[in-house]
């Protein structure tokens, strides 16, 4: 999105990105202000979570017949 000021960015974002009822809130910020992670660091950032499957509900085995859990 190109815009001269914040208000304009918000209005342009509204006109571009809510045409099909997507979203409940709009956040805009100058792209130069975004600090993104380096793809080279992807392993350090994301891999450590790979084996922590106990964070997902499907990790836990519940016997058949037990419902609403």
């Amino acid at each position: 999105m190109h815009a001269a000021d914040g208000k304009m960015a918000l209005e342009h974002a509204r006109d571009t990105y809510t045409r099909r009822m997507e979203g409940v809130s709009l956040w805009v910020l100058p792209s130069a202000q975004i600090i993104a992670s380096d793809p080279g660091d992807a392993a350090a950032l994301f891999a450590p979570a790979e084996d922590k499957i106990y964070r997902h509900p499907t990790f836990y085995k519940i016997p058949d017949g037990i419902t609403h859990i």
Binding site: H2, E11, H12, D15, T16
Partner: peptide, 11 residues
């Protein structure tokens, strides 16, 4: 005058 304005005016 700009692509973004085209979207606004059509909306």
């Amino acid at each position: 005058p700009a692509l973004e304005v085209d979207l606004s005016l059509s909306n």
